[in-house]
Design a protein around this nucleic acid. Sequence first.
DNA 1: CTGAAAGCGCTTACAG
DNA 2: CTGAAAGCGCTTACAG
Lengths: 343, 343
Amino acid sequence: MAGQKGVSLKEVADKAGVSTATVSRVINSKTVVKGETELRVQKVIKQLGYRPNRVAQRLRTTRGASKLIGLLIPDIQNPFYVDIIRGIEQYAYAKNFAIVIGNFSQNEERQKFYIEILKSESVDAFIVAPFPGMNEYVKELVEEGYAVVCIDRGLANMDLDVVKVDNYQGAFDAVEHLINVGHTRIAHISGNTLIPTTIERISGYEAALNKYGIAIDRDIIVGRNSDHKSGVELSAQLLDMSNPPTAIFTSNNLLTLGALETIHSRGLKIPEQVAIVGFDDMYWAMSLNPPLTAVRQSGFEIGRITIELLHQRIADPTRPFVSIVLKTELIVRNSCGFKLKGM
Amino acid sequence: MAGQKGVSLKEVADKAGVSTATVSRVINSKTVVKGETELRVQKVIKQLGYRPNRVAQRLRTTRGASKLIGLLIPDIQNPFYVDIIRGIEQYAYAKNFAIVIGNFSQNEERQKFYIEILKSESVDAFIVAPFPGMNEYVKELVEEGYAVVCIDRGLANMDLDVVKVDNYQGAFDAVEHLINVGHTRIAHISGNTLIPTTIERISGYEAALNKYGIAIDRDIIVGRNSDHKSGVELSAQLLDMSNPPTAIFTSNNLLTLGALETIHSRGLKIPEQVAIVGFDDMYWAMSLNPPLTAVRQSGFEIGRITIELLHQRIADPTRPFVSIVLKTELIVRNSCGFKLKGM
DNA sequence: CTGAAAGCGCTTACAG
DNA sequence: CTGAAAGCGCTTACAG
């Protein structure tokens, strides 16, 4: 069980013939240390391969300096969040931050569980895509003085820094593309309407139809959850209509995959028999048949910006809240068809 | 920046009129505390909403009790590893363990970086899918007395607990299925041959061909890296041959996706013009067109078993090393075609 | 510029 | 069964 512990500050101090305070100073370089002393200490540090014990550091220092950030992710199976994690990590790597990930699997209870764990691990700050609705737990975090930045969506009951994407515009672009290519009967499979993101995408969808004078038909706007199963079932429901849509706009990647499964299982041709465009690009979207047309939101970029905001917030807790809204990009591949004559 | 710190042990002790030692005892319940005292302390704990500070606990306790496990993952974008993470997490959730993930992106330098970070975070133990080849860093970990369990592959230079899948048999089954269905000219896109897994899959491929008396043609066994790009390029190379294969067996999910991209971009029909079976199932494999036939290895199960082994190893560091080999399952969907007459 | 000392929040022999 | 005390490995006023 044992295993030798690492070299300690004290050992370095002894060997260098100085106090631990001095060694600590050269490591943190906050106060001035005489050049000669510093060199001597540095040498011993190198010699002994000394690495500060972060646990001890964290116990000692006040919040904001512990170099540990808690990351609360709704679903690690969703590639969108994986991209965000990668963006955050990139920065963490460079800045010697460590990240603890709590994957709460779209479960409020579990979100709470991870918040508790991460608190008792003394994280400096939290990055969270909050469980939808009134989120008392995340709200509490802020009230307790933690730096918090939200991704993908904010809180219903509190202002916060949030970095997200222009969901309205992204949805608008997708649907406009469908219209440009000749569709008029366009369905929308939306997600969990407790999530603001879902609502914004519905608005974008409706706005595009309005712009082109296409009446909105509530029968072909369907939604339940933002998951694969809903995609499978709702697309089936749509396709079963006596007057089925010729095109579907899906509100996220899981829904898209579900719809695709249904469409293929019925042997329907895309885009000839039914066109599809989805929110969220996937790195394997061109391996699909046909390659999928999709609204890309850069999770990586969201991650990068998020951690920058967090950094600022730790440095200045009084800075006003900001909302960063990134542009989406419509990636046109082959799942919507091409412009039809005369439309 | 501040934010009140949580309630401390001392506060609980004061309010309950006992020493901190006693409070600590009721929390860890290692020694006997008088029923009455215990009740009183429990009540105060509840009242104050006290939660032990894990950082302080970790600083104090010897290795093996800190409830923190380091997880070294080669590529968080690969859904196989995501499943493993989920399996591990499930258990962590139940046992009040916390997990720190280091995603080293197939980069040895970065693997080392994370090992250092995790060490200085005083993790109890490591779970690692080691960077291929002689892995001095992981070896060192073991020598320093950390509990280590490997996933997917072991170390070339040291015996260790490892949990993996029967790669040989999985590959064999895939290729045999291709043969049963009528193919004789079967190519193999393999991966990084430094990874034992890759080698085992090649063996399985060859064994299946041998069993049915099909000559092995080195020209159609191609391999470079285990990534998407290699899949795109190597499949193109195969398809460009004057005598191209009628079927391809790909060594992992990324390779499969890459090959699919090439096949679709050439407008080739699957399975009529080229059949494909891949190692690694993906949760969206049935959304592909056609739904992909694949060798499933349960990452979730691997994760679950891994953490159990780790638990045992922490409890008994002298237990002999074991290698757990899980079965794979061939999921037959529609990418290989059906039995042809007369074969 | 540097050291002695206190203390972060715990756990664990050692006494009693 | 319980408490006083030491100590895990650091950092940071406070003196000098």
